[in-house]
Design a protein around this nucleic acid. Sequence first.
DNA 1: GAGACGTGGGG
DNA 2: TCCCCAAGTCT
Length: 294
Amino acid sequence: MHDLHTTVAAWYARHARDLPWRRPGTTPWGVLVSEVMSQQTPVARVAPVWEQWMERWPRPADLAAASPADVLRAWHGLGYPRRALRLRECAAAVAGRFAGEVPEGEEELRSLPGVGDYTAAAVASFAHGRRALVLDTNVRRVLTRVSEGRALPPPALTVAERAHAAGLLPADPALAVRWNEGVMELGALVCTARSPRCPQCPLADRCRWRLAGSPPDADAPRRRTQAWHGTDRQARGRVMARLRALPDGASLAEEELLAGLTAADPQQPQRALAGLLADGLVGQPAPGRYALPS
DNA sequence: GAGACGTGGGG
DNA sequence: TCCCCAAGTCT
């Protein structure tokens, strides 16, 4: 029976995925880009996009100089395209306010567009080797199971969770980094949300949830199932797909752009377009014409 | 704090 | 086919 941290670190050393941004030579900016791309998006889908992205725009200044249209097209498949625009703004902020160097402190990191608590901690820890509390959904799930004996963490991060996780974070920065990446990876590969691979888990012998027989979600209020069909979000996605597919320099009139998007609510397509315009995801190269923002 | 915000793959 | 999601952030 090994110490918790040693056990996780040993498991990570043996089972960590060979993700492109974990390879030697990856810059702090590359790590930041990987974290933003991975927000709510499966890592397997991020990897190939990240490689092309970093080859095309290796430094913050390169991305800041790119057109929103190119950035949005390169983002294809990752979802939540507003993240792409924010990442470009983030690049401009790093290039400008921070002389092209990704800041090391969580406070400064959080001041960047698209960087919240999780991403700031992840970049501080994984890119700079700092001691930071990385609390993503994977870590929360692992700790909830091992320590609380429950199947899933509450919908929103609680102060109790934060305190518990903080107490587990090693004091030594290098050990803290290993712990962070180890627990995250364990949650991503073994202690998964749907079908956890408990027989392969290095913590199975001390997991309260496992020891209790892996009881299904007690009564914890689950997040409401994500609304989708017939939503504005779906309509927005369709509009963006059409614009991304347009040849460079081409544009569409509103009727062409929204044709066939009729929904239960006849106002929806236009509402979606208005929202995209407001978000800067759609541009108007000429009056009444629409395209990706230049 | 609740709700908005995409996409494509797996079970 | 249909449902459920996957390294959150912003308002």
